[in-house]
Amino acid sequence: MKKSYVLLSILSYVAILASLYMALIYAPTEKSMGAVQRIFYFHVPSAWVSFIAFGVVAVASFLFLRSGAAKWDLLARSAAEVGMLFLTLVLLTGPLWAKPVWGVYWTWDARLTTSFILWLIYMAYLMLRSYVVDRERGARFAAVFGIIGFLDVPIVYMSIRWWRTLHPSAVIAGSDGSGLESSMLQTLLVCVVAFTLLFITLLIYLYQSTMLSDEIEQLKTTDS
């Protein structure tokens, strides 16, 4: 068991190195945007990973409500923390790219607004736990909120898209890789794989360490 974790850590370390090489050296510089476009190789995988993480939160929450087993709650909590890390990266790298390209750090388009609201939702999710005294109740509340929050993601996205399409204002084309050059596409794929590996590694380690700290907490509170 331990061995496979070490193997996974090494694997994701190598993959991240490879993704750094591909994103910073291998991929050609984009013509119109210049070097700043390389942020894209970290921005998109981060977004991808954070969505997977919140998907894990929702599924684990659902399983927790069905079974009441603490391990599902632990998984949901760990996934939410890792997901927040990557979503924060998304929200930081986005504006860095947007300023030179769009001329503004931020625009309230569907994708940006949704990411921001998503960040608020999962921030509330993490806060909720620390505000409930009883551990089990806190876990149940968080599970309910985790499910509603995830359900809310596509709804927020759609509502803001309709809001923009019904009111045609300055809609800026997304940063999608429509017609990406093949070497750029390769780079993106490697980055996505590397970030996913990193996500799994972080999730496993966070899960383990949270479990241990829970046990310590438990030992501290019971009378010897």
Binding site: A70, L74, R135, E136, A139, D214, E215, Q218
Partner: peptide
């Protein structure tokens, strides 16, 4: 019969 209530290690 054999009633238990636990949460995690508690």
């Amino acid at each position: 019969r054999t009633l238990s209530k636990k949460f995690g290690a508690k």
